[in-house]
Amino acid sequence: MKDTLLPIQADSISKQVPVAAGTLQILRDIDLAVKPAETLAVVGASGSGKSTLLGLLAGLDSPSSGRIRLAGHDITAMDEDQRAAVRAAHVGFVFQSFQLLPNLTALENTGLPLEILGAADARERAADILDRVGLAERTGHYPRQLSGGEQQRVALARAFVTRPDILFADEPTGNLDSENGRRIADLLFSLNAEHGTTLVLVTHDGRLAGRCGRRVNMAAGQLFDH
């Protein structure tokens, strides 16, 4: 398969950060390719570097060395603003801490990525997808008026509303109880299947990882195939 068709391709990427005692090697020499519509779980203990990897793959940060292609773009050759444009066009996110804006209603939070893209029908599409995640009755509620599970469902709706090619999820069930966690996972995978989205999921929850098509382990800044 040619590089350009792969949604994500990382070639020997490393990340170091300066610390008081010298430099800290967070990631070392990682190669990773993710195919279209593939679901990939990155598992590992806390501090193993999996969130850093996710940030690099999604273009939120730059590697110290190596090359990353995201949706066909060499994002390592881009500046932050160019990467932002790639994210806007191709990428969706789901976070452990939901990251809903407290002053926006569920509907407004969901529609925000469409507004950034300048979509005229942002409200309708946001309402549709909120209906799809079972929150049709809660569109006017603010995050503080929603339970944790409901907040994460709004976050899922926001992630899928732009029909992204690639979805990055960082511990999406980490802040939820097991029942709510299971429901969110169900929703995540069914939306993913409906939209044919490529999914990269970071978690230390083995069961969640088990629902992905492929699984890689992260330890001491290196990747190991499962």
Binding site: L60, E80, D81, A84, A85, R87, A88, A89, V91, F93, Q99, L101, L112, P113, I116, L117
Partner: peptide
């Protein structure tokens, strides 16, 4: 800060 970070994540540039 959080709002800015999220907007950046969703594709807004620094100048935006």
């Amino acid at each position: 800060y959080d709002t800015s970070a999220l907007l950046r994540c969703l594709g807004c540039s620094q100048n935006d």
